[in-house]
Design a protein around this nucleic acid. Structure first.
Lengths: 334, 334
DNA sequence: CTGAAAGCGCTTACAG
DNA sequence: CTGAAAGCGCTTACAG
């Protein structure tokens, strides 16, 4: 069962391939009404479907983009992807999704494969390990947009949260409720994971703004699996914090595991606010006060930037940073 | 900046395009060692990267598959996609992901676009609204695998949970803990959403096995937004159920919202087990007893089936149903 | 061991 | 208003 090609419909309709092609591309300007009808009918009859691969080869556009996330299982990434897909769908673009797992080698391989497949552009949560590769991409004016992480060495438009503001909102909320001894729990600090860096500096700045000295004992930054032990240590030392901000959703969960285990009463014994909204925030006991990021808007923005770049190679938005506002959702944990 | 083509490297290396192509495809059999070296070097020098689109056109294989889910935001779908991506990555396949939103029109559009883009196969959570389309796909022997939902009209291999067993595990656990008045809360019953149908029938069968008459008042099936009200009605009627099984994660959340609001003590006032594992199950208070589905294994299986079909068009696995075993995770809510 | 030529299924000036 | 021809960047018999 040979697939039908443009040549088949041309033959059947008694016209040339060119004319069929004109029809397919809706260039009806000079086309006779009868020819048009005839082609339309033949296509219907033969069940012809254009081969977009062939078109892509000629037109140098595949109408598909690559999206490289660290891990699609992170809910933020999922939401961003969903927003990107929705936006792309409106413009008839498709997305190829890739999980780089924060591994620069994997990231590199994906980028190279995506380019080989001629995707029209890439949206990436960069690992930080492929600066030269990205520089090469800029040099050939290849459309790329970064999400969530800034690579200062590289001039690529980036959309991310105002992470310092997120910490500020969290700390302010705690202060407003009378807590002064505020700790922060964080995952390990990798140099390129911008949100972690900025959220910590935001935490420090927020304290400073209120003339509260930063107490190094109140800051934990550690691998997830060690977190519970370190939290225990922190909360059982002399003069422990009376409130905690969780740097992200992953950390929040570790805190919650710990407090459940130790039957610590929130907010009675310990106030808590988490950066990143979580699915269970509203019906947890107590309902969790969180700082949410507008993931869908951010994904949409990234898609918009990329498609604009694809359509108009000469935009000048390079190296622009697009910051989005976090949103404090007050509930019961503080 | 013209991209480098195979013709450029052929010229620079002083060989023919054919030879370069042989090199690229690692057919070194008859290639002189010097030629090989020379080509290798030229490629390096020019920074040549093959255009896979051109290759695809000739070879009729794009090394990419389409994945159509209802909504990537559902955690089950996310996990399945992650597993598919991992499996495909090992075989150098890429995945295009699409959200059909349970809309047959959207599904249809995606299928047609994916085929036009010549993807080598499709894994879909079918909506049920495109039976004829899928029949057409089988007729031309196009590789398709279904996930999660069965379309009885269509002979396509399908991987899904043993949903009846899932209900059975939930009910048994409740019975084992002495509860006899067991209700089930469900979302609306659409004809093609297999898991819902099977989980309800599983619930009924489980009761029957234990000679407990099915009480229609103990079964709610309703839109999510009405669920709280209906649960309230059920639990405040005369002789209410003393235990509930949540048909899926979405429903579980509604139950939890309700019980938190009404300060219902779980399992004291009401025992609870949810089908579908949820992220917060272990640190919720009480920790939630759930029935988990092996999402990653299921995704992997679907990918495996599809890639096998793509490689060997003549496998005979049509219409096979691949059932996966649910797993009861005992915690505190029952 | 290597090259010339045809072909994959389209699009696009260009000619008439 | 429509067609012949070249070309997109590869691969693949086939010839030598």
């Amino acid at each position: 069962m040979k697939p039908i090609t443009i040549a088949d419909v041309a033959k059947h309709a008694g016209v040339s391939k060119s004319t069929v092609s004109q029809y397919l591309n809706q260039r009806y300007d000079y086309m006779g009404e009868k020819t048009k009808k005839r082609i339309e009918q033949t296509i219907e009859e033969l069940g012809y479907r254009p081969n977009i691969i062939a078109r892509s080869l000629k037109q140098k556009s595949t109408m598909t983009i690559g999206v490289i996330v660290a891990n699609i299982l992170h809910v933020f990434s999922t939401q961003v992807i969903r927003a990107i897909e929705d936006f792309c769908n409106e413009s008839n673009f498709h997305i190829i999704v890739c999980n780089a797992d924060d591994d620069p080698m994997k990231e590199k391989r994906y980028i190279e494969m995506l380019r080989a497949k001629q995707v029209d552009g890439i949206i990436a949560f960069p690992t930080g390990g492929n600066v030269e590769l990205y520089k090469g991409l800029i040099k050939v004016n290849y459309p790329v947009v970064f999400m969530d992480r800034i690579l200062p060495e590289v001039e690529i438009p980036t959309v991310l949260l105002d992470n310092e503001k997120a910490s500020l909102l969290a700390v302010d909320q705690l202060l407003k409720n009378g807590y002064k001894k505020i700790g922060m729990i964080a995952p390990p600090l990798s140099p390129y994971v911008t949100p972690r860096l900025e959220r910590i500096s935001g935490y420090k700045k927020a304290l400073q703004q209120h003339d509260i000295p930063f107490n190094p004992n109140y800051l934990i930054s550690s691998e997830i699996f060690e977190l519970e032990a370190k939290i225990n240590h922190m909360l059982t030392m002399a003069d422990p914090p009376e409130a905690l901000v969780a740097l992200n959703d992953r950390v929040l969960i570790e805190i919650l595991k710990y407090t459940k285990e130790q039957q610590i009463n929130i907010p009675g014994d310990l106030a808590l606010v988490g950066i990143d909204e979580v699915s269970f925030a509203s019906f947890y006991s107590p309902a969790l006060t969180t700082v949410a990021q507008p993931a869908f808007q951010m994904g949409k923005k990234a898609a918009e930037l990329l498609l604009n770049r694809i359509r108009d190679k000469d935009t000048d938005d390079f190296s622009k940073i697009y910051r989005f506002e976090p949103d404090l959702i007050k509930r019961e944990s503080c």
